[in-house]
Amino acid sequence: MRRRLLAVATRLFAERGIDRTSLRDVADAAHVTERLLHRHYAGKAALLDAVCARAARRDADRLERIAARPVPVVERVRAAAADAVAAAVSEPDDTTVVFRAYRPAVAERCRAVRAARHRYRVLFRALIAEGQRSGAFTTQVPADIVVDFFLGSVHHLSTWYRPADGRSVSDVGSVYADQLLDALRAARPAA
């Protein structure tokens, strides 16, 4: 039941927006009573917390496995970048909801939203920092800015990517990964 409620809430939050989706809307779309919905989730904030936490946990678990691979950091960053793109494209409703929930007005109300992306960002930032310490990447830009810039562009994918355009998820992931790695390898301009 919880899985079904999360799936319906995710779809409605993505389609209509968080503020324009009521608990009644979720209950109606899930073909349950509002009372049953309240048995599982105390309110919309709790439901949104659960949606964001589920998506963030899944993404962070994948990134953790990528980061632990016994391969050079450049290969792990490439894999992490391609995975972020694949997740954003294959789970566009999750990406849209998490991105919308990250707005300060929403995040202030929802505890899990504030923390939902933290573990993922920390893991991704650690990969970039490792590459910078090893000399594989430039240190011109702080790792946290690189991560925020990259993830911002990935979150934007759900607004334009359509499989019918002839670009596969793998193709888009490779382009994004190449762009990230090119930026990280950029040599300092001559003084």
Rank of each mutant, 00 (worst) to 15 (best):
residue 2 R to Q: 11
residue 3 R to E: 14
residue 4 R to I: 09
residue 11 R to Y: 05
residue 12 L to P: 03
residue 13 F to E: 10
residue 18 I to K: 12
residue 20 R to V: 04
residue 20 R to A: 15
residue 23 L to P: 04
residue 24 R to E: 08
residue 25 D to N: 13
residue 27 A to H: 06
residue 31 H to T: 07
residue 31 H to R: 13
residue 32 V to W: 00
residue 34 E to F: 01
residue 34 E to W: 01
residue 34 E to T: 15
residue 36 L to E: 07
residue 36 L to C: 01
residue 39 R to Q: 15
residue 42 A to D: 13
residue 43 G to A: 09
residue 43 G to P: 08
residue 47 L to F: 02
residue 48 L to I: 08
residue 48 L to C: 02
residue 51 V to Y: 07
residue 54 R to F: 03
residue 56 A to K: 03
residue 59 D to E: 12
residue 62 R to N: 06
residue 63 L to P: 11
residue 65 R to H: 12
residue 68 A to Y: 03
residue 69 R to N: 00
residue 70 P to C: 00
residue 72 P to L: 08
residue 73 V to R: 02
residue 74 V to A: 14
residue 74 V to S: 05
residue 74 V to G: 07
residue 76 R to S: 04
residue 78 R to G: 05
residue 78 R to F: 10
residue 79 A to I: 06
residue 81 A to Q: 12
residue 82 A to T: 13
residue 83 D to K: 05
residue 85 V to W: 07
residue 86 A to E: 13
residue 87 A to H: 10
residue 89 V to E: 12
residue 91 E to R: 05
residue 94 D to H: 01
residue 94 D to M: 02
residue 95 T to R: 11
residue 95 T to S: 09
residue 99 F to P: 01
residue 107 A to R: 11
residue 107 A to P: 02
residue 107 A to L: 05
residue 109 R to H: 10
residue 113 V to L: 12
residue 113 V to Y: 13
residue 116 A to E: 10
residue 117 R to H: 12
residue 120 Y to R: 08
residue 125 R to E: 15
residue 126 A to W: 05
residue 127 L to Y: 07
residue 130 E to G: 04
residue 133 R to G: 06
residue 134 S to K: 10
residue 136 A to D: 14
residue 136 A to L: 04
residue 139 T to V: 14
residue 141 V to F: 03
residue 142 P to Y: 11
residue 142 P to W: 04
residue 143 A to T: 05
residue 143 A to W: 10
residue 144 D to S: 11
residue 154 V to W: 06
residue 155 H to M: 08
residue 155 H to I: 00
residue 157 L to E: 14
residue 160 W to V: 15
residue 161 Y to G: 10
residue 162 R to L: 11
residue 167 R to N: 14
residue 168 S to D: 10
residue 171 D to V: 05
residue 171 D to H: 07
residue 173 G to P: 09
residue 174 S to A: 14
residue 178 D to H: 08
residue 189 P to L: 13
residue 189 P to Q: 03
residue 190 A to W: 05
